[in-house]
């Protein structure tokens, strides 16, 4: 007996993503899914973001890693609420894991929720978590070839934070070329050069978040 399904493989993930999306909409919480390779500086960027914005916004972070509570501890040390998801070998976060983590928050008490995905430029890009925005972090030491090599990540994100620009004088990275490569994959995507260490460029990232937040609460 043959049965035709024609069902998206990620149907169950997408149901959970829709469930999350409705919760975020009801509580007017802006949710950003942050993705990058391991070591691009996602957690350091979030530490600086929490430091700068926690005076005006109630911030929470969901941390995705294979193991340890280290990243969640770093965020908690900055005074924000953080929940750690350990994927135990899984290479990405899925919407169901996020739904389970949300049970630990009162979303009505949260304005900004950052989801720091597992460090990986391939798998996380395919999973809708119910977020408002997908943002990629790329760091200068990774080299210019990351954008053309991982087009499926950068075609699905709407902002690239180019981190560690304080190292530009010591490396061959070409910012203009990165912008051109990004435009040829995803002309809608923005690129903001930043350094979480020296704070350079971070004001532009904070302004982007504030703009996104206003849009989110007006909907």
């Amino acid at each position: 007996m043959k049965v035709t399904l024609r069902t998206d493989v990620l149907t169950n993930n997408n149901k959970a993503a829709d469930f999350n999306r409705e919760l975020f909409q009801n509580s007017k919480t802006l949710v950003i899914n942050l993705m990058s390779s391991p070591g691009a500086g996602k957690t350091t960027l979030l530490e600086e973001t929490v430091r700068e914005l926690s005076g005006n916004y109630r911030i929470a972070v969901i941390e995705g890693d294979l193991a340890t509570e280290r990243d969640a501890d770093r965020i908690r040390a900055m005074g924000a609420k953080a929940v750690q998801i350990n994927t135990h070998g899984g290479c990405h976060l899925d919407a169901r894991m996020v739904a389970a983590a949300l049970a630990e928050f009162d979303l009505d008490e949260i304005d900004l929720l950052f989801i720091e995905n597992v460090g990986n430029l391939v798998c996380p890009s395919g999973y809708d978590l119910g977020q408002h925005h997908k943002v990629a972090v790329l760091s200068v030491p990774e080299g210019n070839d990351k954008i053309p090599k991982y087009p499926q990540m950068f075609m699905r994100t709407e902002l690239v934070l180019l981190n560690k620009i304080d190292l530009l004088p010591y490396l061959d990275f070409n910012v203009g070329e990165a912008k051109k490569d990004l435009t040829e994959i995803n002309p809608q995507s923005m690129l903001i050069p930043v350094s979480a260490r020296t704070q350079e460029g971070l004001y532009e990232w904070f302004a982007w978040i504030e703009g996104a937040y206003l849009k989110c609460v007006q909907q």
Binding site: M1, K2, V3, T4, L5, R6, T7, D8, V9, L10, G126, P148, K149, P151, M155, D181, T183, E184, I185, N186, P187
Partner: peptide, 29 residues
């Protein structure tokens, strides 16, 4: 690699129309 770059216009004016599908089509038992 250059997903949006039209080879004729040399402008990032291309949109993906197929290739993103990932579906269970059918099964037999």
């Amino acid at each position: 690699q250059k997903i949006a770059l039209c080879p004729s216009c040399q402008i990032p004016s291309g949109k993906v129309i197929t290739g993103e599908t990932f579906q269970v089509l059918s099964y037999e038992g």
